[in-house]
Design a protein around this nucleic acid. Structure first.
Ligand SMILES: [Mn+2]
Ligand SMILES: [Mn+2]
Ligand SMILES: [Zn+2]
Ligand SMILES: [Zn+2]
Lengths: 144, 144
DNA sequence: TCAATATTTAGATTAGTTCTAATTCAACTC
DNA sequence: GAGTTGAATTAGAACTAATCTAAATATTGA
């Protein structure tokens, strides 16, 4: 320990992160606090690779296994959602755990959130028990 | 040549497949005709693996490279769509090239088509140029 | 303190896919 | 029909994302 995390903006302190982990029944280790803080506060739909790159700069000697293990634990704990989207070949992790949709920028491949309040979706499906609806929009965000 | 393809049902003859390939500007080889016939007529959202398995039973000595090459060619020619849906770890190939949505069976992981006529989707997105809307429903098909 | 348990780690492994370079095949030319 | 040329096919290597393994390390708590 004794290192400092170079967060660009802060939404939660390490203590708050610790509490959220504890509330979710996850033992808060230094690695988990660091990753949780990055994915919950700083990052936007990061890949495991991006989490690892961040860790390489901001945390001493964290292994890829720990990155994957921790992301899996955070997903299982309900603090994070794993999104595997077509046309992207790696999964991304989403701190927005409320129901929402996604825009994939055709140029950059980057994913951003779409507010479900901006959608009206009705499905008339007999014989199908719906558990979840995922909507991915491919397109571009227009520069305003 | 001289082998016979063991198709379970037939929607197109080899000659018709040949014509469709030619119309799409794709040189019709024996391998391509066989694969095209399988994915366009017999299969339902098959993976590359499933195409290969079918070929192993019905075509002499076809390589995995040819399976992938041919699927890519068919996709580029607009005869087939590649769907790389996360939560599944292999891409599937879809002969239904019209706009439609998909149901992923939670138990089996199998993908099936949903008729867009059964949906009403309106999106009120300012600053977003929509190119394509993909909808994936996770759930189950109820046994009727 | 010391054992028991949990976590992290490096590296191996797996699975899907793509790439490479050699061989085979098919289509023209002569 | 041979011979040439370019395209298609092939086996196997390479690549990438993700998971697994087993050893090392850290933490807990008796
Ligand atoms: Mn990456
Ligand atoms: Mn498979
Ligand atoms: Zn999101
Ligand atoms: Zn389909």
């Amino acid at each position: 320990m004794g290192y400092t995390l170079g967060l660009k903006r802060s939404c939660l302190t390490s203590e708050e992160i610790e509490r959220r982990l504890a509330d979710a029944g996850v033992h808060a280790t230094a690695q988990r606090i660091a990753i949780a803080r990055y994915v919950l506060c700083e990052a936007d739909h990061p890949t495991a690779d991006q989490v690892k790159s961040w860790a390489d700069k901001n945390f001493p000697k964290m292994s890829m296994a720990t990155v994957y293990n921790t992301l899996k634990i955070l997903v299982a704990a309900g603090l994070l959602k794993k999104i595997a989207f077509p046309h992207l070949n790696e999964a991304v992790y989403d701190d927005n755990i409320t129901a929402h949709y996604h825009l994939i920028d055709e140029k950059t491949g980057r994913m951003s959130d779409l507010d479900p309040a901006d959608f009206k979706v009705t499905a008339n499906l007999k014989g199908v028990r719906i558990k979840e609806i995922e909507i991915f929009i491919k397109g571009r965000r227009e520069l305003s």
